[in-house]
Design a protein around this nucleic acid. Sequence first.
DNA 1: TATAACTGCACTATCGTTTGTGCAGCGGGA
DNA 2: TCCCGCTGCACAAACGATAGTGCAGTTATA
Lengths: 355, 355
Amino acid sequence: MKQKSPATLKRIAEQLGISVTTVSRALTGQARRYRIGRETEQRVQELARSLGFSPNRLARGLRLNRSSTIGVLIPDVSNPFFAGIVRQIALGARERHYSIIVCDSQDSEDIEIESLALLRSHNVEGIVLCPVGLSADHLLQFVEGDIPLVLADRYFPGLRLPYVASDNFAGAREATAHLIRNGHRRIACLQGLRGTSPNEDRLRGYREALASHQIPVNESLIAGDCFGEQSGYVATKLLLKSASGFTAIFAFSNLISLGAMRALSEEGVRVPDDVSVVSFDDQPYLPHLAAPMTVVAQSAAEMGQIAVKLLFDHIQEPQRTVPGGILLPTTLISRGSVRNLDESPSERTQRHVCG
Amino acid sequence: MKQKSPATLKRIAEQLGISVTTVSRALTGQARRYRIGRETEQRVQELARSLGFSPNRLARGLRLNRSSTIGVLIPDVSNPFFAGIVRQIALGARERHYSIIVCDSQDSEDIEIESLALLRSHNVEGIVLCPVGLSADHLLQFVEGDIPLVLADRYFPGLRLPYVASDNFAGAREATAHLIRNGHRRIACLQGLRGTSPNEDRLRGYREALASHQIPVNESLIAGDCFGEQSGYVATKLLLKSASGFTAIFAFSNLISLGAMRALSEEGVRVPDDVSVVSFDDQPYLPHLAAPMTVVAQSAAEMGQIAVKLLFDHIQEPQRTVPGGILLPTTLISRGSVRNLDESPSERTQRHVCG
DNA sequence: TATAACTGCACTATCGTTTGTGCAGCGGGA
DNA sequence: TCCCGCTGCACAAACGATAGTGCAGTTATA
């Protein structure tokens, strides 16, 4: 059952005593067009099937300049949010008989740049990119360039590339408003990486919600510097020590809120009794937490589906494409991590002072 | 900043008025070997750099029969466990200047078979496979075949292919023993797909632990039929209705325990007061659950690292490879989802009857 | 009967890269 | 002066698949 070196057109041609050309045409449905006899066509197809022939995609890609491959470049494949995106891209590509080459940029812009060149050298026909950096210089080559590229999750204002992202502004505004409606005024904001579109949009939403309720923004309540777990942990620890007296935390990512929860539980601060928490990103376990977490849910699956659709639209009709963005609505899922401060104000306000 | 059609050896050769051969040799470090002049070598390298030349990997792969690509075939890329494996493979491949083509078999053996053929047609130099099916017929071609293949997570007894998996037998035995030590005798077992190595090994561990404590196995307490969330949910619902009176659940996967928790919370059964739970697979949120979950942790990262190492060993020295398996130890992480029944027996035993 | 049209396939070039070999020109030793 | 060996590069083939074109042999048409 050893597999010999794989079947080629040449081998089939030799066994049948005909030319490689004819074999190729019989197998690519070009028999009629090139006047290959019915019987010859049959024999070729049968032998090909029995040999398990599958055309060498390197050769085919080289000749046709179509690799049937797209590239996927993601900051962290093991982050469930990105993994959800990748999955939909994998499924969408399979449907269209494409394969995906996946690169993990490890949140490094240098690796991102390098990986884009790598994908180019693989002759991918398109790329879905979840960018990590603050600069888009290395993406300019894709604006009206030779390889279609679609951004997901983040975009760059002013950069004419198609993208799909969550409506982070609206989502953050809604989450903040939710906290305000529950009587919170001192709301800590655990942000991600400054300068990235999700962060800036969420921050704008946060500020906007406060402003529209005539609550001044306390800049010292805005903390954190990246979307990782450490950032949430450290920022929360510092906030707790700084006597800033916040009653709620709005975390800008799943990992940030995870870090925040670790810090809170280490410091013996209870959710939502002492501090309320709202986070971006839903997760399967959140309903079962000690304090079932209220979240702004993004649909990674939908984002992946749309990204892959945009990309293939672009691949199939490069000229018809309108560069522009799609913003996906977010969903506020209210669970148990937000306490209504208005319910028993006298009893609670001094019960536990945070920080 | 538009990117023209990418630079080729030919273009460099023409611009420099020399032959393609010379350019190739100057760029692949073969200058000395083929007596290319120092000056020529310099000029080629400079121009190549300024053009951002990167060799076409399709052409190179075709010529060298080395695609610098490996295939990764996974049942569900968005499952955190598999995503963790994929990530390490991505990192390991990058280190070695390889790219990965990722396929998602969607838990379908048919898609798995199809994807293996697809990867073959991409001339991947190796494959990491997390298999889904019960049969290994389609894997026989890789035993001493032309493409190295490493199994991860699951293996097939008797199939001579290298693999890396968790020591599921020991892990399950330890988890079950832990429950027994805490006074549990009627332990429900929420299994995954029958016939797969993780399931059978875990089941053996479960039985072994019971046997070594002289506890007869109650077959009606063994339920579930796949590793998904639905299976855990349904099995738990049925067990609760069947008046089987179990005091603990041992779930064979993260998704199964997730389903179990959903069922338990719907039925108002509290963990660990009414039912104790131990699950396979650790997750970041588990410490923060209402009942912080006790788990048998597998290291997906380590599994991925070892898989990729085994694969590249195999690729580099095909003859030296010893087909055989590596079993990774699991870690029992005791948190709060197991109640010690011996602590207040009189008060608790009749307090809540499950099912 | 001569010619046209059609049938059925093969020849050849091509994609971009790598590799074995060939061929000039030059200097040095006999 | 003759030949050898060295330097520095070019030529051609090959990987496997595809596409334009050419060329026999057969049948239909005038």
